[in-house]
Amino acid sequence: MRRLRSLIVAGLLGLAGTNGALAAESVVPPHQEWAHGGVNSFLSMFKTFDYAAAQRGFQVYKEVCSACHSMDLVAYRNLTGIGFTEEQVKAIAAQYEIQDGPNDQGEMFTRPGLPADHFKKPFPNKQAAAAANGGKAPPDLSLMVKAREHFEDYVYAILTGYEEAPADHPIPDGTHYNKYFPGHAIAMPAPLFEDGVTYADGTKATIAQQAHDVVTFLAWAAEPHLVDRRSTGVKVILFLVVFAGIMYAAKRRVWADVH
């Protein structure tokens, strides 16, 4: 009976994770080490983001990705979350010309960005984005890390997974061979190059380094409250353990003369 019970509980829990079925052609991305332990990891409760990497990652996004990919859900003011000061955020926001309006004459106008503005989109709408990119709009990156199986590892694998197409696997014109993309034919050309960006902190900008940094940034963008979430969780669970202990003692006391 007890065995049966544990079997059932184990079965329910184990099978709960079966939502991860993948298309036949995709390759499981290799696991990478993340300072924050991954956005969806049970066992990283004390880990925080590598903020230096996230700031470098923002630079990669700004100088490379943002030419095609929007990050519509993130506002410049959010950047204080990866360690930029309010002044730095103002300066970053002011680099962008944001469309606003209509003004009293009914006309749209542009003004320098403010911290409250969301990241400026590279294209005014989805159709324009698709038209400029061979018919397929580059996806928004705000939630990219949470929107794919294997989370950070997948995005990292895509960024570093470009290869020559093998002879037995021809891919259509206008696509590029990527080992980890389902079906291998990805519309995005390899985005990262050795020293494609120049890091202010002197970190060598290898492809792997840039991929690691930008994925750290994207993980933060997808789950900005990760660190809050974990520290709250640790406190909640510690409290609940104490509470469970007290309730167990109370229950034992109540039941003492029944057993």
């Binding site: 007290i246 003692a249 109370a250 006391r253 109540v254 003369d257």
Partner: peptide, 20 residues
């Protein structure tokens, strides 16, 4: 259940349970 010794400790546990 109210008989016997251990009143104080029992009351403490109930109080602690209610407080938490």
């Amino acid at each position: 259940m109210h008989a016997g010794e251990g009143h104080t400790r029992r009351d403490f546990i109930y109080l602690a349970a209610a407080a938490t």
